[in-house]
Design a protein around this nucleic acid. Structure first.
Lengths: 245, 245
DNA sequence: ATAAGATTTGCAATATTTTGCGTTTTAATT
DNA sequence: AATTAAAACGCAAAATATTGCAAATCTTAT
């Protein structure tokens, strides 16, 4: 049986049952478990399925993205926290990385966070010593963040020490880009209101871009990825005078 | 059963019931309690649930008193939903009763809800057909709602068809009263912006009052409790020309 | 057609992960 | 304080993954 045939069969099985066991596939396809394992690995790498211990599950669901690259995000969040000092006024967007950041804030820091993101706000509120300002507006169903003119207006009345920009795509040529136009407006306003702009992105987001531009690379002061700061992947970013953590 | 499957099941259970018992999960998933414990630990670590003694609850928002008088609150919420019509602009406060209301909104209704409550907003957002406007401001750690002048200001620019006031204490002499002065300011502004004011309260809240006054009974158009509308406990409220459901 | 090179496959040895059980520690209740 | 339920810990067995390797298979250039 050809590899491509197996792959189609596997994808079908997962499409039907939402999950599949490695041993079952080995029986069904009449190949060794090793081969199936390698097939799953390949399909996972292509993003078509999610390989898990003992088999694979469908990737279409929400569950995948939430847990995806979780470890990397924790690493990023921990680096970001080192930038915080008591007394600061900090702008922060939504996204799972910033959510992690919000979770991990040490209790000794007394900081005011300002955010348009429901999930980030909620997480921040679990810390009794943190003050949280929510930027109101129409909430988007996808990102659970407030969008629109009211947010931008409110931001124009704010001066922040720091700004944590989550998600987004980074590229030395196009700078920071986003998929959603409204999100771009918010981020632009956030950057304008901050003394220091920090971009948090897992390395997958590097060297890729989306259709709308938030800012050039030189508007970003600090860049944080899960990689070692002197990883060669970051070489092209270094020359822009950006601090890399 | 794959670990990921268990995780999805656990998250679903919590999403539906807001909490789960460890022993129930152990039965449901047919694995040892230790395994469930490890699953919960993992999910908690990822921030997807909150692990507590004996089981787990959903993250952020609502706490243990969520469970209190839950059945009564569902009854109230169901009555309240009958007042809703597509196309309306509806103000809604926080509180567990309104949270239930938000949960139970039927999908055929196209409504815009405006709220200063994080938990209510978040729940409303789970309905794709509902538009949600969040009234931004400084968030309180206790109630998870936005307080302060910015909320009151925003409310002055809004005209709503309906206003659902949760919590609060009702009394024929003192009217609607509250414990928190800032909350009072918000509720006053909400009443001012609405054509029709609905008070939702479990019967325990009747005939009791707190230190700050929101409004007299005659500012309230409709009153909803879990009791039968012609229960004698409600007699004294009836004469104010209030509609009782 | 065939020989060199690359890819795929199965196997075995070695790691890693998962899981349930007994024991100890911790937390809630009376 | 005493009693009980739950959580944490360490452990060992079982299941699953990874790796190196050699045989089989497929490519492709001559």
């Amino acid at each position: 049986m050809l590899k491509e045939e197996r792959h189609t069969t596997i994808l079908n099985e997962i499409r039907i049952h939402n999950r599949v066991l490695l041993t079952d596939l080995s029986n069904l396809l009449q190949v060794s478990e090793d081969t199936v394992r390698r097939d799953l690995k390949e399909l996972d790498h292509k993003g078509q399925i999610k390989k898990v211990h003992g088999g694979a599950i469908s990737t279409g669901y929400h569950s995948h993205n939430q847990i995806y690259a979780h470890d990397k995000k924790v690493v990023i969040a921990q680096k970001a926290i080192k930038l915080l000092k008591s007394g600061q006024n900090v702008l922060i967007t939504g996204g799972t990385t910033n959510y992690e950041l919000a979770r991990l804030i040490p209790s000794k820091l007394k900081i005011t966070f300002i955010t348009p993101s429901l999930s980030t706000a909620s997480q921040l509120l679990s810390h009794k010593h943190i003050e949280v300002i929510f930027l109101g507006g129409r909430l988007s169903h996808e990102g659970q963040i407030a969008l629109g003119g009211s947010v931008v207006n409110s931001l124009s009345e704010i001066r922040a020490d720091l700004c944590f920009l989550g998600t987004g795509y980074l590229d030395t040529v196009n700078g920071l880009t986003e998929f959603d136009w409204e999100v771009v407006q918010i981020k632009k306003a956030m950057i304008k209101s901050s003394d220091h702009v920090v971009s948090l992105a897992i390395s997958e987001k590097l060297n890729s871009s989306q259709r709308y531009k938030v800012c050039d690379m030189d508007s970003i002061n600090t860049m944080i990825t899960e990689l070692n700061p002197d990883d060669h992947i970051l070489d092209s970013y270094r020359k822009n005078g950006i601090k890399i953590l």
